[in-house]
Design a protein around this nucleic acid. Structure first.
Lengths: 197, 197
DNA sequence: GTCTATAATCTGATAGAC
DNA sequence: GTCTATCAGATTATAGAC
């Protein structure tokens, strides 16, 4: 089919973002040219600038949207005993991130390609997410359910561990996502438990 | 001091690798030009090719040297009870990686910028390292010391957690490295413990 | 909204003088 | 071993026609 000329507002825009997401995740922001994005979208490079002021904004908006989507998920953070709050967090984190490997990959790998202002904004959002887990841990410590000496460290350790699932998990592999969640929950549950050594 | 011309074998070579390491870690392989490396080294771009056949080899050799150095460390893997083997592994991993943040960062972030052949070689080395931890876990399960359902998963989870230290730890911060090691060891020890729920 | 054409600059890598 | 000069092509972003 010949490439057509004309108006495609409302379809090209999302396609630009989807394509940029895919290519940035695959080859990295610095290695992807606007021409390559345009080629995959099916327009010429110049046309991209109807949808983004520049390449940096494209990256930043992908990362910001990912983080705000993440923060907008309803998780009933403060409901029920801390142990149940933590279990919900673990399950949610693994499943949500496993569902969006490209967004997660970019959010981790492309931080250094953000301008300082954009970097600061993304970091603020990331910290908000971490604070939710930290708050759960602190409630559990207060309630005497958790044996956690330093909630901030444990927060970062748990998030690193859970997000690591994305580096190896593949749908249809040896383990189902349910099994993965169960295994990680087992580790987290024990790691934060009050020590009975 | 004016820039001199002449022979500097034995000094320029290491300087090229050090500079490439620094810049790749800072801005990413794709974003760093040979001209920029040359500028920091204090030579012209063409001179770099006396020390590397191309940019790709520069990246690959940095990553390969990092992995073989890691594997060459003496760790007395199989000595003593599994719990002590695991404690040594945790302490070693955190300290070794905290000492080499640039190498570690590159080893994680630049995998996709390796040619397929080079990627395969680095992955082989990485797997060798993972296998050491997995072997410790299996010995502990056999001995009845550990409650680990799936040693492979737990291996990946522990390594992700430990390596995550590098994303936030800074010398001179709130916690000393000794304190960090103690905190992470506490989590790992409990996470792999036989369950007494 | 998309196109073509182009500005201004950068890229990895090589050749040959010294 | 390092230099200068260069090849051949890529880069982001913009201008102006349609």
């Amino acid at each position: 089919m010949a490439r057509t000329t004309g108006s495609h507002a409302g379809i090209t825009g999302p396609k630009v973002r989807q394509t940029a997401l895919k290519l940035f995740a695959q080859d990295g922001y610095a290695a992807v040219s606007m021409r390559r994005i345009a080629g995959q979208v099916g327009v010429q490079a110049g046309a991209l600038y109807n949808y983004t002021p520049d390449k940096q904004s494209l990256l930043f908006e992908l990362m910001r949207d990912h983080m705000t989507d993440l923060l907008d998920q309803p998780v009933e953070d403060g409901d029920g005993p801390p142990l149940e709050q933590l279990e919900r967090f673990v399950s949610f984190h693994i499943r949500y991130h496993a569902d969006r490997p490209d967004e997660v990959f970019i959010a981790y790998m492309e931080l250094r390609n953000l301008t300082p202002e954009n970097f600061a904004e993304i970091e603020k959002l990331r910290r908000q997410y971490e604070d939710r887990l930290e708050a759960i841990l602190r409630r559990g410590v207060e309630a005497g359910d958790f044996g956690v000496a330093d909630p901030k460290i444990v927060t970062l350790a748990i998030i690193a561990m859970l997000t690591g699932v994305n580096t190896w998990f593949r749908e249809g592999g040896r383990l189902s996502l349910d099994e993965v969640v169960a295994q990680y929950w087992d580790m987290v549950r024990k790691a934060v438990a009050a020590d009975r050594r």
